[in-house]
Each structure stands twice: as C-alpha cells, then as structure tokens.
C-alpha cells in the first residue's frame, strides 16, 4: 500500500512536463557533460607532445629518481583508465596536483587569483546590463528610428571588435594620453583594485554590451509583434500598461541568457587580463599554456567548464520554472 503510493508519487514526479523530472534529466546531462569534459581535460596530459613525466617535471633538473617519483605520484605506469580515475578522484577532493612553474599546489595558486577574475567579470557584467538592456528596449520600441539604426550598426561593430585591440586603444587614450586611469596591474586591494579594473571592465563590456543589446532588441521586437499587443492596443490600454506587459514577457529570455553571458565572461577574461597585466585566472591560463604547466591548465579548463555548465543548468531550471509556456512545450 505504502510502496504503491510512493511509486505513484514517483511516477507523478517523473511524468513528462514535471519540474522534478526536468531537473533530474538536466542534472544527469550536466553530470555526463562534465564527465566527458574531465576525460578530455585529463587526456591533454597525454596529447601534449613529449613524455608526460618529463612534462610534469618542467625545467627542474631531470634525474631518473625524480622521473620515477613523478611517475609514482601520478600513477603514470598504470593503464590509462586507472590513471584517469586516480586523477578524477583527486580532482573531486579539490586536488589538481602541483604547479610546475610555481612551487605551490594548483589549488593555492587558483584561490589567489580567482577573486580578481570574479571582480572583473562582475564589474563588466554590471556595466553591460546597465547600458545594453535599456538601449535595447528603447531601440526595439522605435524600430527604424535614428537611435535604433545607429545602435544596431554600432552593435555590429562592437561584436566584431577584438577585445585586446579595444583594450589597448583605451589604455593608450585614457591611461597614457589623459593619464586618468592606471595602465597596468591589479592595484592594492579595496578601492584601488576597483579603480584598476575600470578600463578592463569597459573593454570587456564593449563587446558584451553589443551582444546583449541585440538580444534585448530581438526579444522585445518579437514580443511587440504578438497578437496580444494589438489586442491590448485596440482595447485601449494605456501605453504604460502595454509596456509593462511586453517588458515582463520579453525579459524572461533576456534574463536567462544573461546568466550564460556571465558564465562565458568568466572564461573570456583571458585577453583582457593579458592586455592589462592583471593577475587573474585568464592571464594565469595564458602563461601556463605557454609554459606547458599542465596541472594548472587542466584545473582552469575544468573549473571554467564547471562554472559554465552549472550556470546553464541553473538558467534552464529557472526558465522552466518561470515560464509556463516552456513547461507546456516540454509536455507535448
């Protein structure tokens, strides 16, 4: 009786279109994606030309004893799959091994750097949202107006403009020419840190704002073309009432894609951090790749993938929970 009840409850929960089923399916898919990615990331060690043990030694003096101890430590003489499982087990405990370039564990190295990347991403994300969303709405409201056309053209240029070129130009004009902002470095924490992040954040935001502008504009235009808007107009609803209706609906796709934008921002800071010589995750990755510091490269790649995958998961679930139309579509 009791088991029959719980069974029915379970089937109900897992029936097509239910939120729980959706969450479980998406969780499983995300887990699988990360598992595959972790495998690829681990394989990087063996795809890199040269003996993995020598690659892990780096520039230290290579003695047979050292090579042997590295092989033992990373289980390099074991079969490939068992090496992978060892590595994965350590990774799941937060242990990515030791950096070759710096004599510290990868985890310490990352925890020193992650804050800056997070601050940089947040600042440029905030800038993007504050500038691009209102402009996108305004442009959609008057398609074909001078504002719409100039902003649309600017967004095409902005999407195409390379971050590092824009960054260097800004650096030259505001850093060297007008001498308003600091040119290089991360600052001494507190306000100085944020002051150092202004130019990099503007640089990152310029490309992103173009994308978000386009996205917002498309969403609002699509919503304005819906039948209910024409109906509301013919019913004599005020401009303000219609606007609040349209915006509420249009902001669902905008808000959900903003989540993804933030996640990608986290991985997209490489160029800006290198351009402005900021000590974050991105510049660490660029340096580690050139130096073949594999444990660090593996850690950052996997970390970024995890952040992106988890954000995508959260966004999907939110979307599903917020918008009844998606739920209905899923049920069909």
């Amino acid at each position: 009786m009791d088991s029959a009840h719980s069974h029915r409850r379970l089937t109900q929960l897992l029936s097509r279109g239910s939120l729980t089923r959706f969450i479980i399916v998406r969780l499983a898919a995300t887990g699988l994606l990360l598992l595959v990615l972790s495998f690829v990331v681990f394989a990087l060690l063996h795809l890199t030309p040269g003996d993995p043990a020598r690659n892990l030694v780096g520039v230290r003096n290579v003695t047979p004893e050292l090579l042997q101890s590295i092989r033992d430590k990373y289980h390099l003489n074991d079969p490939f799959m068992s090496q992978y499982l060892h590595w994965l087990g350590n990774v799941l405990h937060g242990d990515f091994g030791e950096s070759i370039r710096n004599n510290t564990t990868v985890t310490t190295l990352l925890s020193d750097r992650v804050m800056l990347t997070l601050q940089l991403s947040s600042l440029s994300f905030a800038l993007t949202v504050i500038v691009a969303v209102p402009l996108g709405i305004a442009a959609a409201w008057r398609t074909g107006s001078a504002l719409d056309r100039s902003m649309s053209a600017a967004s095409i240029v902005g999407i195409g403009a390379p971050t590092y070129a824009v960054g260097l130009l800004l650096l030259y004009v505001f850093g060297l020419w007008f001498n308003i902002f600091p040119v290089y470095g991360s600052g001494d924490g507190g306000f100085d840190r944020w002051w150092h992040l202004v130019l990099p954040a503007i640089t990152l935001a310029s490309g992103l704002a173009a994308m978000v502008f386009k996205l917002t504009r498309t969403a609002v235009v699509a919503e304005l073309n819906q039948d209910y808007v024409a109906f509301a107009q013919s019913r004599g609803l005020t401009h303000r009432q219609i606007r609040s209706l349209v915006l509420r609906n249009a902001m669902i796709p905008v808000a959900t894609s903003l989540g993804l934008v933030f996640a990608f921002l986290f991985g997209g800071t490489i160029l800006v951090e290198v351009t402005f010589a900021l000590q974050g995750i991105g510049s660490l990755l660029a340096g580690s790749v050139t130096f073949k510091d594999l444990p660090v490269v593996q850690a950052i790649t996997l970390l970024t993938a995890t952040v992106i995958a988890l954000t995508a998961l959260a966004v999907d679930i939110l979307y599903y929970a917020v918008d009844p139309r998606v739920r209905k579509r899923g049920a069909q």
Binding site: L33, L37, L44, P49, G268, I270, V289, K292, L294
Partner: peptide, 21 residues
C-alpha cells in the same frame, strides 16, 4: 555541438594550439 559550445572558443583554441605547439 553541445560539447564544443560548452566552452569559450578562445579558451579551447588557446589550450589546444598552445599545448601541441
């Protein structure tokens, strides 16, 4: 496609081309 889109292009291109020289 999902797998390849799960990571920023710059990151993957940097890691792969950098490691294989």
């Amino acid at each position: 496609a999902d797998l390849l889109l799960a990571l920023p292009t710059t990151l993957v291109a940097l890691v792969v081309t950098g490691l294989v020289d």
